[in-house]
Design a binder for these strands. Structure first.
Lengths: 357, 357
DNA sequence: TACATGTGAGAAAACCTTTTCCCACTTGAC
DNA sequence: GTCAAGTGGGAAAAGGTTTTCTCACATGTA
């Protein structure tokens, strides 16, 4: 088989003149080569390979076999020029750190690789000019669609994507009106956490979370209040370990001490757990702690490992990918905000981890 | 200006028939539209826009102005078909977590965006079949080159890239023989760390690091031994905080206690610092600690914030990007391994942070 | 025998650019 | 008045693929 791949074969083909002009770059095998090798026209070759048109079954099979033998792969650029589909999408993100983008990207890629779609990743910080350049580069390359993702549900990317002539889907960032937006169901996630604490018999709960200016913080806090009952306490702060420490200091300095702490993210939870340990408070025997995010690098390294809420970002990416694909193919999609359920990941910071959920 | 963008303009253009066939998707503005609007041929339009050919300066300017007015952008697919350049490269990685890939990606993108190059990101876990699919998809899309990156200097990606007919550059992963490979200079990084400890007057040093099976671990350890002097101690372990704890327990259980600890990565350093604090050993007053990686999320959250070695991955990405571009343009590049220098990031875990380096 | 129908396959247009040639015209020199 | 040289611009091919149309031939029917 491999013998056909050599120069000898190509030179013998009908396109021998091409080899002379391509210079250094080894000329790729085109459908002309397939046609020549099979002794048919390129139209017939094309139809054989794409299972279209009319022809003898035997011819079709033979062409396919020969194409495989000589290692023919269609040129996506040429195909895209005609079909108006590039099998390419763009992923735009302002999440430099990749905390959210990477799982989303993995999901998109996972969903689309089977459809032959590749993904341009563009990290655009907060720079509108840079964003503009990247978007234009993607449009020039005829992307079939764009997925915009960010690090915050209630902020937009620093540019307007609403008037592009390609479909745009938003994931984990605020979308334009009338668009499709995927996000995690933070209220349901909070509910999972609180119900788990309740199930373990915790009665005196506190919610230690990030800045109230974040939409998801408010949403989680509201859900927490609703599920836990009115008398429960919420402490707003910042997204850092040190705020976790501080919050524990505050809580243990007076008033009734909690036996269950629901934290707004894993870093806060880690600060809380470290502070509790330093005070000699045992986790999970004396106090149960739940985090939010399931950021492995934090959650798995806390002592004890952290029970936390996973936002299923990969699944979110998968759905966003399938949706943008559907739109690119002209299938219509109901606009609106889709909230995807979170999942509780049980480790050891609450106890109950031997219950088998 | 915007008035020209409407359907009215396009319909009036010489290509009005196209609108009927494109159906839902709004037809893009092509060079035909520019030519029609300027009352010239498409060849002239092309030459005007690309500053090639011969024509009156006034004509050239007018064409450019009109093109800008109606918002013409050349179709990169069509251009690529002819020029054999797609202005697209692929980034292949097996670093699911993105710890190393994201900074490298940022550097590549940063270096290439000015050249109009976009980057396909393909995360291929350790799955050779998946890797193969991704590479073929990229080749079909005529990428101008591929950058392979990983999470470990001494491991290859699970597929062979050496016989592709596009240039391949390796970054932070082991490359094929005869290829160009970029990596950090771990020995020099270790030297920076040790010299800093020495400069601060630390005499009794220990190196607490990861598994000896890692090439970079051995390289750092060797450099450490060479710079610190022969009598110094090296503890090999794993890449985790708990190993940092364990190491401190070992060191403080007998023998001479160190006053300077150089850790193999930031997570170990964090474990070390936490363990020291728990023992009442003051950092940096009693012991100086240096990390490796400058992983912000870890280094900035330790108490005190961690002085650590940064591998300059972004710069590494930048150079890899420029190199693959050079190869794609046919410029020849000296093969071999290029070691890029590391940089010491001074925070507070060693003291000396007020020295202003 | 004449005609409709069906079958296999090829020619050519189309997608959008760039580039190579070539043509028509002007200018200047002899 | 003829010729050479220079100038502005257009026609057409090329790049690789898909799709539409057309053609030649074989088969079946009246």
């Amino acid at each position: 088989m491999t013998i056909f791949l050599g120069k000898a074969f190509l030179t013998a083909s009908s396109r021998e003149e091409r080899l002379d002009t391509t210079g250094g770059k080894r000329g790729r095998i085109t459908i002309h080569d397939v046609a020549a090798a099979a002794g048919i026209s390129i139209s017939t070759a094309s139809k054989a390979l794409n299972d279209t048109g009319r022809m003898g079954l035997e011819t079709r099979e033979r062409v396919k076999r020969i194409a495989a033998e000589i290692g023919y792969r269609p040129n996506a650029l040429a195909r895209g020029l005609l079909s108006k589909r590039s099998f390419t999408i763009g992923l735009l993100t302002n999440d430099t750190y990749g905390r959210f983008t990477l799982p989303v990207m993995a999901g998109i890629s996972d969903a689309l690789v089977d459809h032959g779609v590749s993904v341009f990743l563009c990290a655009i910080e907060e720079d509108p000019a840079l964003a503009q350049i990247h978007v234009e580069a993607m449009l020039d390359k005829q992307v079939d669609g764009i997925i915009a993702t960010g690090k915050r549900l209630d902020r937009r990317l620093p540019l307007d994507l609403s008037n592009l002539n390609v479909p745009v889907v938003y994931a984990f960032t605020e979308g334009a009106p009338g668009s499709v937006t995927f996000r995690s169901d933070d209220a349901q996630g909070a509910q999972l956490a609180v119900e788990w604490l309740a199930k373990l018999g915790r009665k005196r709960l506190v919610h230690v979370t990030g800045p109230e200016s974040f939409f998801s913080v408010r949403e989680r806090a509201n859900a927490y209040r609703k599920v836990a009952g009115g008398q429960q306490q919420v402490l707003f702060g910042v997204w850092s370990e040190s705020w976790g420490h501080e919050a524990v200091a505050k809580l243990w300095s007076g008033g009734e001490r909690p036996d269950g702490i629901f934290c707004g993210n894993d870093q806060i939870a880690r600060g809380v757990i470290d502070a509790l340990r330093e005070r000699g408070v045992r986790v999970p025997q004396d106090v149960s702690v739940v985090g939010f995010d399931n950021w492995e690098i934090v959650a798995a390294q806390t002592r004890p490992p952290l029970t936390t809420v996973d936002m299923e970002l990969k699944e979110l990416g998968r759905q966003a990918g399938l949706t943008v694909l559907a739109l690119a193919e002209g299938r219509s999609v109901e606009p609106g905000i889709r909230k995807l359920p979170c999942r509780l990941v049980v480790r050891q910071s609450c106890g109950g981890d031997t219950l088998g959920i």
